[in-house]
Design a protein around this nucleic acid. Structure first.
Length: 566
DNA sequence: ATTAGGG
DNA sequence: CCCTAAT
């Protein structure tokens, strides 16, 4: 009935008396640790990892990543086969899997970011790769199964979920779940069970043919088949069947080893079967197709285009890498650009109106790029040499989401460079690893700052933000020239809006901190006439012109009177 | 590096 | 504010 997974169990510790239906495990191979790298690099060098378009993904938008892709050792060519895997035959020579360094199979999984990154540079479609597909080095044993036999590998972690009787789509009925529960109790310490075919049938779990594995997610079952192609090459097949109700997307934290770590992985929902074959002949493709009755492998991937990974995400991942590899300094913009191109070569990062895939064979499929990266806890920088703002900005993370107490740990570092913090705005930027967001902490513009900005514009003109910055905001390090530009734009809008609402009751005069006095807005409008802001000036400021003339001219600075300007 | 502009 | 493109 139930059997421990062979390589995890002492050979002489059968949990249940062996029965005739017990699966026959012909052989397995243990893994040598070193083999993975060779295999990976070889694969990558060959630029061979291609996932072609016929995935059977019903809802790729949010729910699944491919749980596992099992490849044979060379993983050289995966061939799209259809249906034949249903009744695989295992000739005696089938046992001649060649393995590199003893590895028979690898699991592409979400766990290994480094490998995923390597894969990114290849022809693997980026939407599948960033942080979502990796190579897991836990090579599993190879189970050879007589065609008539059935193995089920069931992870103990899923039993509790499996017996969720509230869900009528539950994979297992109560009795089955209880039996499994019992079985796991009996083999405490072992992770998996082998379950024979009769048991499955008894519990209406047909459809699980050959080598079947219940994965961490209780709703996801994995079928494993090993067959041999006509040319004698050994082929590993993987079929993943999504057995759960569509109303129960598999989400939430996955607690098996494959998905450990901070990354919250989602899984691709596979409707029907996904079939992956690999052969040892030559590396070229990985294809998926239906195994079930569906005749044609339709385009399985939803046409949604993958989103370009936000640059910030990539940069942060880069920083994460560099920190992990004990590289201290931040990455310069240039190198970042280069890496961006290296990593996502199919994106035209510049000089393109919109993102274009260079490879149009790719039809879609998308992932949600996780916005936050698992960051290591960042120790406060040792204050060996007085930290400059640049360094801190470069290496620290935003702190906006951080509790105030923690923020205080970082900010003092920023106050120390005297020239930059002559004013009160010493809290310009503070980052934290935890937030992993680089967003600047919002600092409201004070009226004084606005006045300074308006003065600057009146002196230097619109668009000369660096000059204004240098002249008037040199002491406030947190106001960059871009900030000035943004603020000016906002002032323009405010002035326009103000004009339109002006007649209306000055209700609730929003005493918000960022309230800009009306006089200033008038000046803004005047300046907008003098220095029309590109594009916006026409649509928004032009309407203000009549009103400006009626407003008393500001006397606080050398403002060109509107009459002369017009 | 700056600036404009969209989000 | 952020991000990107354009210059």
């Amino acid at each position: 009935m139930f059997t421990c997974k062979p390589y995890e169990v002492d050979a002489d510790m059968p949990i249940f008396p062996a029965s005739e239906d017990e699966p026959v495990v012909l052989e397995h191979f243990l893994v040598e640790p070193g083999c993975k790298e060779d295999w990976v690099s070889g694969l990558l060098d060959l630029d061979a990892f291609q996932i072609e378009k016929n995935f059977n993904i019903e809802d790729i938008s949010c729910t699944f990543e491919y749980d596992q892709i099992k490849l044979d050792t060379d993983a050289v060519q995966t061939k799209l086969t259809k249906g034949e895997g249903k009744s695989p035959e295992f000739p005696s020579e089938a046992s001649q899997e060649t393995e590199i360094g003893g590895c028979d199979e690898y699991r592409f999984d979400s766990n290994n970011a480094d490998k995923a990154r390597k894969l990114d540079t290849g022809s693997c479609k980026e939407s599948y790769c960033p942080g979502n597909v990796g190579l897991e080095n836990e090579c599993q044993s190879v189970h050879k199964i007589d065609s008539g036999e059935l193995m089920v590998k069931l992870s103990s972690t899923c039993i509790s979920g499996l017996k969720d009787t509230n869900n009528h789509h539950s994979l297992l009925d109560q009795a089955a779940a209880n039996e499994l529960d019992e079985a796991f109790k009996n083999i405490s310490g072992h992770e998996t069970l082998l379950i024979d075919k009769n048991w499955l049938k008894k519990h209406d779990l047909y459809g699980l043919e050959n080598y079947t594995e219940f994965d961490s997610s209780l709703n996801l079952m994995k079928f494993e088949e090993i067959s041999t192609e006509s040319d004698g090459k050994t082929v590993f097949s993987s079929i993943v069947d999504y057995c759960a109700s569509s109303t129960h997307p598999v989400t939430g934290s996955l607690n098996d080893k494959s998905f450990s770590g901070e990354q919250q992985m989602k899984r691709k929902r596979v409707d029907g079967c996904e079939f992956l074959k690999t052969s040892t002949s030559d590396v070229s493709k990985i294809k998926f197709c239906f195994l079930d009755e569906g005749d044609r492998p339709e385009p399985l991937v939803s046409p949604k285009r993958s989103r370009k990974p936000p640059r910030r995400y990539i940069e942060e991942s880069l920083e994460y890498e560099s920190k992990s590899s004990n590289k201290k300094c931040g990455i310069g913009k240039r190198s970042k650009d280069r890496i961006l191109h290296d990593r996502y070569p199919k994106y035209k990062w510049q000089n393109a109106e919109q993102v274009v895939y260079e490879d149009d064979s790719f039809n879609g499929g998308c992932i949600q790029v996780p916005f936050g990266l698992p960051m290591e806890k960042e120790q406060p920088h040792p204050k060996k040499n007085k930290p400059s703002l640049v360094q801190s900005s470069e290496e620290s993370k935003d702190n906006r989401l951080l509790e105030h107490s923690k923020r205080l740990e970082i900010e003092p570092l920023l106050v120390e460079s005297p020239e930059d913090f002559s004013e009160d705005e010493c809290v310009a930027r503070s980052y934290t690893a935890k937030g992993s967001s680089r967003r600047k902490r919002h600092i409201s513009w004070t009226t004084e700052e606005v006045v300074k900005l308006v003065d600057g514009v009146s002196q230097c003109g619109v668009g000369r933000w660096t000059e204004i910055k240098r002249l008037l905001f040199s002491s406030s390090s947190h106001r960059t020239s871009v900030d000035l530009k943004d603020k000016w734009r906002n002032l323009l809008r405010a002035s326009c809006a103000q004009l339109q609402i002006k007649e209306k009751v000055e209700q609730g005069r929003k005493q918000a901190s960022n309230y800009v006095p009306e006089s200033i807005l008038w000046r803004v409008r005047e300046l907008a006439v003098i220095y029309p802001y590109p594009r916006e000036s026409r649509s928004k400021v032009s309407c203000t012109v009549p009103a400006v003339s009626s407003f008393p001219a500001s006397t606080s600075n050398a403002l060109v009177p509107l009459s002369t300007a017009v």
